[in-house]
Design a protein around this nucleic acid. Structure first.
Lengths: 199, 199
DNA sequence: TTAGGATAACTGACCGGTCAGTCAGATATC
DNA sequence: GATATCTGACTGACCGGTCAGTTATCCTAA
């Protein structure tokens, strides 16, 4: 036995990063494992040491995504000095930050969404994401209503609407990424919405 | 010369319908032309009489989609007896109707969105859609503001937010299609939003 | 009424390129 | 020298697209 330093975690993220780049550029169908190998600086064979198939690798990206996003969001839920509105704006701000970093990978996202209709495992991940979102936002909205800051209404419904708005901003941006600025759009949309539910 | 009845339009839509079914079920990558042939009741060779490639056929579906949707929406813009709010609700209603009919094809949509990042021709179609949407909705919103029905704000921004909300409803629904009812979601979201901009 | 010619419409076996995945061997690190 | 790590040539399944041949439909002439 030789205690060589374990490179497998390093390799995995190295491969995932390369794969993200290539999949984003070419789509799942047109991407060849060879391309990912090249991008990652490894050989095709090596990829199969860390991921058991092309699809497995593709899904690896998905897991990676959601780890990133929620870690950041969840932190700001703790801050009690902020008003509900500020918290909501913070959430949209954090999501924007994350999206901006991940803009280039958006084509992959759409492929995941498409996949989610066919693969239960993928759908599970999205459902989990939704659940986390609800757990985070509903209490904030409810609190805003209770304190009379937001107008009366069902906190769950309002949270879903806010979530739809953010996700939809992404879609609208994708309709015309050259002319629409993602940050500006999400920001304006959030403001309009929050003004709307403000008391 | 023999004036046999021209079946090519009939065939095209026959093929598109079959292709929609199969692509929706299996995704672009996993769908074989043979499958579409079978579903359509024609032979593989016949497909190539009407579409020059698999991708050409896939895009055919996209064109088809947008023809359907906007024809319906555009009609209700004419009705002058309705309030701005009613018009907006009508728009979301028409979109719902169309989406409900096309629910099963949603995976294809996501693939189009993904494609739009890579193919200018596809992006063009979405941009056109956006443009049509803006041309339709902005005047309605502006009118609502001018008459004091809607609160002050930029009509364009508000229209974009409303559009984002609708598109986002679709995404949120797709996160959990088993438990979320598309119609209910779009309806609630629209109401919350319109209540928000109401004066 | 029908034989048969003309051609539009269609068929499906086949071809050739592609590429995911494998594995025998090479290399690096301990 | 032991073993973890990596390489890349190779293989075989797969399938988009083609096309020589078949069938269906219409027309005309006898």
């Amino acid at each position: 036995m030789s205690p060589r330093p374990d490179v497998s975690e390093k390799r995995k993220s190295q491969i995932i990063e390369a794969a993200t780049t290539v999949f984003a550029k070419s789509g799942f169908g047109k991407t060849r494992m060879e391309d990912i190998a090249e991008e990652s600086g490894l050989s095709k064979g090596a990829l199969y040491l860390y991921f058991k198939s092309k699809e497995d690798l593709f899904r690896g990206i998905l897991d990676n995504f959601f780890h990133r996003e929620f870690k950041a969001i969840i932190q700001l839920a703790g801050d009690e000095r902020k008003t509900s509105r500020e918290k909501m704006m913070m959430i949209s701000e954090v999501i924007i930050l994350d999206l901006e970093k991940m803009k280039f990978a958006m084509p992959i996202f759409f492929e995941f969404w498409s996949m989610s209709f066919r693969k239960k495992a993928v759908r599970k991940i999205f459902q989990q994401y939704m659940e986390n979102y609800v757990d985070l936002v509903v209490p904030i909205v409810q609190d805003g209503i209770d304190r009379g800051k937001f107008r009366h209404g069902d906190a769950y419904d309002i949270s879903m609407a806010f979530g739809s708005l953010i996700e939809g901003s992404l879609v609208v941006w994708s309709y015309d990424p050259e002319n629409v600025d993602l940050r500006t759009l999400v920001n304006k949309n959030s403001k309009i919405f929050l003004d709307g539910i403000q008391n």
